[in-house]
């Protein structure tokens, strides 16, 4: 777009639709509650020879942690459902995460390591697309393994599909680790490109003169 004098100049475009922004931040709150209370529950009977330090946990003790976990799960589930329905029906997933090929992931990964990958507002590079898809799958796995652990008798088929009661705890732990790993990478990337943070709040990104942007709205 150009101004009346014909010279190209910077402009603002909406790259994150309102629904994506709202569900993103609600999810952030729900996820922090789930992970921190989950760590407290883990500490009651650790799977590995370590526990999460109490300052990293939520709930104070097992009962409090379980109460937080099973309250926040509704926020996480309802919010997640709204996001996924929008993602499919509103074609957000298709537009933002596809097409995706192994080759493009490899190319973008190499460019990123060589610090040659530039951030284009509203466009995900192939590595980002892969990360978002993988964390969605980890999220699905966390929800399913969580349900399987909560209701091994009433939802026995789900527990059986994921192994047994004892193995489902491990599945849930692995899913949590995957999600937390994603969050760490996600936060590092935000630190590298800090302009993405206000954009996730306002939805609007500044597009420098001459650069193409792809509004997602």
């Amino acid at each position: 777009m150009q101004d009346t004098r014909g010279a190209p100049r910077e402009r603002w475009v909406t790259v994150h639709p309102l629904l994506v922004r709202v569900t993103h931040w609600v999810n952030a709150v729900a996820l922090v509650c789930m992970v921190m209370s989950g760590w407290e529950i883990y500490d009651a009977s650790p799977l590995l020879p370590f526990i999460f330090p109490p300052w990293m946990t939520l709930g104070g003790w097992l009962a409090g942690a379980i109460a937080w976990h099973f309250a926040a799960m509704w926020l996480l589930a309802v919010n997640g459902l709204v996001y996924v329905i929008y993602g499919i029906v509103g074609r957000h997933f298709r537009r933002s995460f596809f097409p995706l090929s192994a080759r493009s992931v490899w190319m973008d990964f190499r460019s990123a390591l060589a610090l040659r990958l530039h951030h284009t507002p509203g466009v995900y590079n192939a590595v980002q697309k892969l990360l978002y898809l993988v964390v969605l799958l980890f999220g699905l796995l966390a929800v399913l393994s969580g349900l399987a652990m909560w209701k091994p008798v009433q939802l026995w088929w789900l527990t059986a599909a994921l192994g047994s009661y004892s193995s489902v705890r491990w599945v849930h732990f692995v899913a949590m680790t995957g999600i937390v790993g994603f969050v760490v990478i996600h936060l590092i990337l935000v630190a590298v490109v800090p302009s993405t943070l206000p954009t996730m709040i306002t939805g609007r990104a500044r597009v420098p003169a001459g650069m193409e942007a792809h509004p997602d709205a």
Binding site: I41, A44, S45, L47, L62, I66, P152, Y165, S166, R169
Partner: peptide
């Protein structure tokens, strides 16, 4: 049957 503790072990 399996006795499942709220702490996570069974």
């Amino acid at each position: 049957t399996r006795h499942i503790c709220i702490e996570g072990w069974s």
